[in-house]
Structures are given as C-alpha cells and as structure tokens.
Write a protein that binds this DNA or RNA. Structure first.
Length: 924
RNA sequence: GCGGAUGUGGUGAAAUUGGUAGACACGCUAGAUUUAGGAUCUAGUGCCGCGAGGCGUGGGGGUUCGAGUCCCUUCAUCCGCACCA
C-alpha cells in the first residue's frame, strides 16, 4: 500500500489556499462572527520547534470548524516584534534589528504555512511596523492626556482637570494620584508652568516619577518587578540593583478594583484567575494613625486585623521609613544607622532566603490610640516600605511574624483572642473570643472588626481602608528596539507631540549601545533628539509589553490609517471569543492587555471592557533531553547502565544532542565530531554500547533537545503532525514529546487514504444508498466530534475517527453519502488530505465551504437496549429490551429473566432501580 | 507558609448529569505474509488465580442500591506568590 503522497498533497493545497485567499475574514457580515486568537509569537532566530504549534493547531481546528459551522471566522497571526534578542544581536553584529526581525518573520511564516494554518494573511503585521506602533504611541499619548476620576471610576481628559483647578482649585477632586497637597483656584493661577506641569503630571495615567527601580546594568535598562527573579533579570540572568531614577509609569493601580472585579465575568481557569487576584493583592482593613511621643509627626499603619488593637504592644517600621530620623534617640543612633545600612544593602535574594527576624529599637514610642500606653517603635526589614504605609502595629499574640519578633527581642505579648496556645505560636483565627479588649470583649474577632473600625472613625484616629499589592507599572526602557515615547520637554515641562506627527518613527542610530554618559541609545540619534519648534525629545522607548497590550483590536481592521479601529468593525468582532496561549503570560501580558482595554473603553475607542472572553492555556510540549555521564575526576564518559544510584554524584550530566542518540545509545563518534573534540574516552557496557539517560524538560536549543516541525513534516506530513499533537492528550496539559507513537496516527491517515483511493489513485467511492447502521455510526461520530471540538478535547475526536474507519472497513462501506461527511468532519484535523478527498469526490469548491454536518438524534437512537443487570451492586447478566419500554416493564422483565431467578431463589427483592438507558439494579 | 492544579495499566490517555473503568494509540506477546525494512495484516494484553472467582482509578474514611466522578481527611508531584501587615 502507501500511495499517500502527503508531500505532494500538502504542497498542492497550501498553494491553493494561499492563491484563493481562503482564510481572509469578511470585515463585516450578517453571519455570526467567531474571533479566535493565539498569543502572537516573538519571531526568534531559532524558528519554531514542535512545542510551539500546539496552541496554533488547536486554534486552527477551531477556526476551520467554526467556518464550516457557518461563522465568519477571524483567525489572525501577527508578530510581537520589538524585543531584546534582536537588539542584542544588533549590538553584536551591527545588523539593524528590523532586518533580523524581517528575516525571522519570513521564516516563521514559511513554517506556519507548512503546517497548513488558517491565518488571515492581512493580519501578518509586526508591532515594529510604524503603521502599527503609530497607534501604540497614540494610546500612550491618550494616557498621558488623561487622569483617573475615582468618583465616577473613569478616565477623563486632563484638560477637564485643569479647568477644574482653574475654577475651584483642588477641592472636590477625587483622583488616582500620589499628589496629596491642596490649593485654591487663586493659588493654582499663581503657579509657574513648571509647578503646574508637575502637579498635572502626578494625575496623568501615563506619568513620569522619580522612583526606586530595578536597574539592570547588564542590560542597560530598568525592569518591571515581574521581570526580576531573585534579584536577577529574567532575561539574560544579570544582577539587578535598586536605584532611584525618573521613569515613565502607567497608573494601572487606578484600575485595580475593576481588574479584580471583572475577573468574575471571564471564562478563564482558576489558576490564572487566582494568579491575577494574587498579583492585584487586594486586602481590606483599616489605617490607624498613632501619635508619636515627643514629636509632632504621626505614624500611620495599615492592618487587616483592627480587632487585635488591644494586643498591640509595639510598632515596626521599614528601614526606609522617613519617621526614623525624627524619632531616633541619640543613644540609639549608632545602632540604628548600622542596622539601616546593613538592611538596605542586603540583596533581595538574601532577604528572601533569611526569614529570621532582625531589627533594632529606634528609642522612640508611639501612643496607643485607645488606651494611651507607650509602644516602642522598632525597625525591621520584615516590614517593607512598598506595601501599605511601610509601618505596622505589631500584635505578637495574633500574628506569627510579630510573635517571632517579640520572642527574639523579649517584648510583651498580650492575648486578646482566646482559643490559641501562645506558648507555641501566634493564634490567627478570627473565630476565637475577644478578651482583654474593653468594648469588644466576648464577641468573636470577626464580629469585632467592624466595631473597632467604627470606633477609630468616631475618634478620628483611623478609617476602613483597602490596599493593593499591585503597583504602577514602569513603562520606559533605556533601549533602542522599541516604540519611541511621543513626548518632548520644554523648560522642564513634558508635552505630548501632536497627533498629526504620529507615527514618531524610530530613528536610525550608528550604535545600539547606550551613550557613554549612560543615556539611552536614542541620544545618539543626531538631530532627531531636538523637537522642531524647540524642546528636546524623550529618549526612552516603551517596554515589550506595549505592542501586545492592544494588538487584538487591530486585527479586524489592520489597514485603517484614520483610526485605531473602525468602531463598527470593532463592535462586530470584539471581544475575542477564544484566546489561546501559554501560562507564562498569565499575569503580565494579560493584566496589561486588560488594563489597556479598560482605558480604551473609558475614552470611547472600544466597546468592550474585557478583551478575552475565554482563555485556554495550552501546556507546553516538553523536550526529552538525553544525558551522558562524565566522571568528575578522570573526565571519562561512562555508559549510564554502569553507574549505580549511589555513585551518581561522582559524575557530571552532560546534555548531548538528541539526534545523536538512538534507543538510549549515543553515537560516540558523532558526539566528538559535534563537539569538535577528539580523543574522548567512552566506557561502554558489555554490548559495546554507550547508554544515556532521558529527562523531560523544557524544549530549548541550549539543551539540545529540540525537534523541528520541518523534520516531522518531511517524514510524516503536516496532517500527521497536527493530528498527533492533538492526539497526545488534552491541550492544557504538559507532556513530553515522543516521536515513538506518531506511527499510529500516520498509519491511520494511510488507512483513510486507502479507504478513498486504490493503488493507482483512482477514487473508490461508490454511490449506493447508505444503510441505517452505516448512518447510525456516521452520526455518532459526528456527535462525538462536535462535542469534542466544542470543549476543546481534540484528543477524543481522533479516536472517534479511528473507530469509525474500522467500522467502515467491517461494513465494507465506501458510499459517498458516508464518506463525504466523514471527510468534512475530519478536515479541521487533517485539512490537506481532506481537501484531496473532497476534490476526488468531484467537488469544485474547497472543503472549507462545506457545511459541517449535524448529527441526527433520531438516527442514533437505539431500537434495543442491553441493560446490565446488577444484583446487589454486581453486574450478573445482560437484559435486552425495546428502547421505548417503560421503567415498570423493564423491571418486570428483569425479574422474570431466568438469570435473575437464579439469584433470587424465590425471595422477593427489597428494591429495584431502573435508570433508563443505563442500568438495572436489584437489591436483595 | 499561602494560593492553584494533577494523581487511572508497562506508556500517552478515555469515561455527558454518580450507572458495565481502562475507549483509542504506543509498547509488548503469538501468528500470518513479504522483494525482511523501523512495512502490512490477525489475535491477545489491568492485576492475582489452572479455574470458578477475587482485587482494582495515590492512601484512609463517609454519603449512596451504585463513587474515578460527590463530601471529609491524608500523602505525593507540578506550577504560581511569598516576611503583603
């Protein structure tokens, strides 16, 4: 057998689809729309490996299926093209990142085409195209020109704020801002342009601020908190230091509440939702203001447990807290300075690794707001300046950290909630009963919380408050390969450029390095840095997140020069119905995309508040690495089967290229050639083989375990690869790549080919009327396929096809009425082959135009049902009855059955359960 | 520590609302066939047992006529966050 010439077939249909622009969506249509989206890739130089297409195959299947179901389908694929690798390559080689990006994009496109994907070719833009980033800059400018009004929970024009200041001063404004001053209209009018500019800046949604940032000297740029892992950069693994710098920020915190609340509306996994919730980190509590003994300043703390106020025996402030210098006594000064110096210079990494409590007393006291006792104020780095107010009321009896601290420094512990064992640990439950607590004694802690807050509000000592872990996001990078910031400065005041000047095109520079003075690469852009008409340009570029924060709005209308997106088109297409991508973007990208969407909604550019209705995180396909053992002392390589478990630590594991390994045996000659090393010693086993071990881990070039889809396509074809990847298991799950079982799918496709064609390639399809049995099997298969696709369980569709193929073979059925719909339902999975089958059956149109058949419930209904009959929970025999027989009749028939009589032996059963269509259970 | 997920044969995995656990595929075993190749076809394959039969969805307990599925508890693995007040 085997004239399944997949190479020829696949080439033919890929050319056909391309030539006919088969996958271009109608911009607007009376048809219902379906918008399915992949997280667009960064086009890296390495090209795709077999792990990448997993999600793309899934979305491709959905896209083709939905089209056959009568939807107008948009399945776009563009490129997230700004980013570090191209720039670092440019630093090394001098090749312009645009050139590298262009080359890599073409390679990606070829590979995707090879896999037969349904991607709208009009959407293949790059975020680095000026026509695209024009709108990235445009949104940024809008953020610069808006502030967030907390009263109506909406972004508003900054000019409206100015007008308000002009008329009434700062009174009556409730905004998301760090500005805490107040002024009258008269005062405002008297301010200099710089003073006004500074105040307005503190309100803008895109604003600059002098902040402590994660400065990464190795990369020459600042990084977002999330881009830093254990004190090192996530990319490149360079050390990161804390440094005070002026940076662009986006006021995402203004949206924290909405970002949190709207999670409820989304069909996202609990895992991602909880990661987002965690990141926003909302907590409800109270802020309480303490007087400080002998000083005018007050100390404000945030707590989630105001109920424990009477257990408060000391205060702790972060080492950076400004109050320290005011309250620190002369006697304590030296010790305090020493501690602060140590704590501040301690690396993030050490601080996390070491959870032992450290600290020092300032010498000062705070006054308990309810009972007036003096509470010593301590400094410790277990309190961080960036959360809450950077100061806490310590309640050692009911907070584990305070408990440890109090024990170490021998501070008083007062129990105020009974029920715990304070000799061992703090008692943190809210269900205990309050004691030693004046007016809340006797109630539970949970009940006490609102009463204590109320009390503080009455005496003007505090208020109920909500805090968030989330902080504003740093939105500037001192890099070249990104969107230039559309801002210029004149007399130290920032202005946005005019909309007509967009796009602000990234200028060429002769070197991509930062300048000698540490300024960004754009400082080398010659005259570009001067804004025409006076002033100088901002030299920062935006982070990689910028382009990906809104790209899904551009796909429906990618060539629009007048608007970011035509509102009527946007209304038709958005939101995205299904978004598929990896978990690595669970927090940052998805958070920023949601934030930008909400902002754009506020200013009326888009009609949706949430961009992605349903999100699916595809599990990555892991690589299977091959490792050889090398003796640490002798440097000899030793076959893995010669090494016992205990000896393993005497050897180093070396990743070897998986193509050099067959059946765990390493081609040692090949290895030496590959590593360009000669005379290596390999200790082989008794059979003369050198064994390696396998390990599933991330598929990565550096671990030499990548498998290119090109190789698989050449050997088995794209249809086999697609089906195989879907067959491996549920798309959400992580699984190691194994080529071993691919043959099963390949054989199946060959069988399908043989079902439709003879050896010479002539069609075997016959014209007879299908039998009821044949139709029944067909419709069962359609049903399974439809249900499988609807819940993205592609791994159950393919077995259904396999079973059906066997069934057809058994029935010797090659009837058109059966084989035609069969080709249609399989076509999303193996599109090339099914097109070929479709054509061979005399169709002129592409199989894409064929309607996905609907299963007919009547047809698959059984005439006779075979009930398993249980006696006391065990199946004892089978009972065949008419499908429409009533429960009572089934019961009667079951009891009358000789098999049942055998078990009953004349006794009458206690109970009989008949579940229609399922089972009969007789209980004795 | 907190949060989220996952535990089913030798392997990847199936199993609508609780209703014959292990579909389908890989692998393995036996056989057939061939121009012998890692091709193709047929049969078998959860475990124990010669057998009837018994036991089986990480462990323990519960609800139910009936539990992979629901509840409680415990263990293991993976992921995320982490002195968050």
């Amino acid at each position: 057998m085997g004239n399944y010439n997949f190479q020829q077939i696949e080439k033919k249909w890929q050319k056909y689809w391309k030539g006919n622009r088969s996958f271009v969506a109608e911009k607007k249509s009376d048809l219902p729309k379906y918008y399915v989206l992949d997280m667009f890739p960064y086009p890296s130089g390495a090209g795709l490996h077999v792990g990448h297409p997993l999600g793309y195959i899934a979305t491709d299947i959905i896209a083709r299926y939905k089209r056959q179901k009568g939807f107008n389908v948009l399945h776009p694929m563009g490129y997230d093209a700004f980013g570090l690798p191209a720039e670092q390559y440019a630093l090394k080689t001098g090749i312009h990142p645009a050139e590298t990006t262009q080359k890599n994009t073409v390679r990606y496109q070829e590979q995707m085409e090879m896999l037969g994907f349904y991607h709208d070719p009009d959407t293949a833009f790059r975020t680095s195209d000026p026509d695209y980033y024009k709108w990235t800059q445009w949104v940024f400018m809008k953020m610069f020109n808006h502030w967030y009004d907390k009263k109506i929970e909406k972004a508003r024009l900054i000019t409206e704020l100015e007008a308000h200041f002009e008329a009434e001063g700062s009174k009556g404004i409730v905004a998301a801002t760090a500005y805490s001053g107040s002024f009258t209209a008269e005062e405002w009018k008297g301010y200099s342009p710089k003073e006004k500019g500074d105040i307005l800046m503190a309100y803008r949604i895109a604003y600059t601020d002098q902040i402590t940032v994660n400065w990464c000297p190795g990369l020459g740029t600042v990084l977002a908190d999330a881009e830093v892992k254990d004190g090192r950069s996530e990319r490149g693994n360079f050390p990161v230091e804390r440094k005070l710098m002026k940076q662009w920020m986006l006021r995402i915190t203004a949206y924290s509440d909405r970002l949190l609340a709207d999670l409820e509306k989304l069909e996202w996994s609990d895992a991602v939702k909880s990661m987002q919730k965690n990141w926003i980190g909302r907590s409800e509590g109270a802020s309480i203001v303490y007087d400080v003994d002998g000083v005018d300043d007050q100390l404000e703390v945030f707590t989630t447990r105001p109920d424990t106020i009477y257990g408060n025996t000391f205060m702790v402030v972060a080492p950076e807290h400004p109050i320290i210098e005011k309250i620190c006594t002369v006697e304590q000064k030296e010790e305090v300075d020493k501690y602060i110096d140590w704590a501040v210079n301690r690396s993030e990494r050490d601080r996390i690794a070491d959870t032992k409590k450290t600290g020092v007393w300032t010498g000062g006291y705070a006054i308990h707001p309810l009972n007036g006792t003096k509470l010593p104020i301590w400094i410790s780095d277990y309190v961080v300046i960036t959360y809450g107010t950077g100061a806490i009321m310590a309640v050692p009896a009911h907070d584990q950290r305070d408990f440890e601290f109090a024990h170490k420094f021998d501070i008083r512990i007062i129990e105020v909630i009974s029920g715990g064992d304070l000799s061992k640990e703090a008692y943190i439950s809210k269900d205990g009963i309050m004691v030693n607590s004046d007016f809340v004694n006797g109630m539970t802690a949970r009940e006490a919380i609102p009463l204590v807050v109320k009390k503080f509000e009455e005496i003007g000592r505090g208020t109920g408050r909500v805090t968030y872990k989330q902080r504003d996001v740093v939105w500037s990078r001192q890099r070249y390969w990104g969107e230039p910031t559309p801002i210029y400065y004149k007399d130290e005041v920032a202005y946005s450029i005019d909309e007509s000047e967009l796009p602000l095109v990234l200028p060429d520079v002769e070197s991509y390095k930062p300048s000698e003075t540490g300024e960004p690469p754009l400082s080398r852009a010659g005259d570009w840095v001067n804004y025409p008409g006076g002033g100088t340009r901002d030299l920062n570029t935006m982070p990689g997140w910028a382009g990906s924060s809104w790209y899904f709005f551009r796909y429906p209308d990618p060539f629009n020069e007048q608007e970011l997106v035509d509102p009527s088109i946007e209304k038709y297409w958005l939101p995205v119905d299904l978004y598929v991508g990896g978990t690595e973007h669970a927090v940052l990208h998805l958070m920023y995309a949601r934030f930008w969407t909400k902002f754009m909604y506020d200013i009326g550019v888009v009609s949706v508040e949430e961009p992605f209705t349903k999100l699916v995180n595809q599990g990555k396909i892991q690589g299977v690495s091959k490792l050889a053992f090398r003796d640490n002392e002798s440097g000899e390589f030793v076959s893995a089967d010669l090494i016992s478990e205990e000896e393993k630590d005497k050897y180093t594991e070396i990743h070897v290229n998986i193509s050099l390994v067959q059946d765990h045996s390493l081609d040692t000659e090949g290895y030496m050639k590959w590593t360009r090393q000669e005379g290596l010693v390999f200790k082989t086993n008794a059979e003369g083989e050198f064994k390696t071990i396998s390990r599933a881990e991330k598929m990565s070039k550096s671990l030499y375990n990548t498998v290119a889809p090109d190789v698989i396509c050449e050997q088995y074809g794209a249809d086999t690869l697609r089906m195989f990847e879907m067959f491996l298991g549920p798309i959400e799950m992580e699984k190691p790549w194994s080529t071993e079982s691919i043959n099963g799918v390949f054989t199946f496709l060959k069988k399908i080919h043989n079902l439709y064609f003879d050896q010479e390639g002539n069609s075997l399809v016959t014209e007879g009327e299908p039998t009821v049995e044949e139709l029944k099997f067909l419709h069962q298969t359609i049903k399974k396929t439809e249900e499988g696709i609807d819940r993205l369980a592609f791994n159950v569709c393919i077995p259904a096809f396999m079973v059906f193929e066997k069934e057809l073979k058994r029935l010797k059925c090659r009837k058109r009425a059966i084989l035609e719909p069969f080709a249609v339902i399989m076509s999303p999975f193996a599109p090339h082959m099914c097109e070929e089958l479709w054509e061979s059956m005399g169709h002129k149109e592409s199989i894409l135009e064929a309607t996905f058949p609907t299963w007919e419930a009547e047809l698959i209904k059984e005439q006779q049902i075979e009930y398993p009959v249980q006696i006391n929970g065990k199946v004892r025999f089978k009972l065949s009855v008419d499908a429409d027989m009533s429960k009572e009749l089934v019961e009667e028939k079951a009891l009358a059955d000789p098999n049942a009589q055998k078990w009953l032996e004349g006794k009458s059963p206690r109970k009989i359960i008949v579940v229609p269509g399922r089972i009969v259970n007789i209980v004795l």
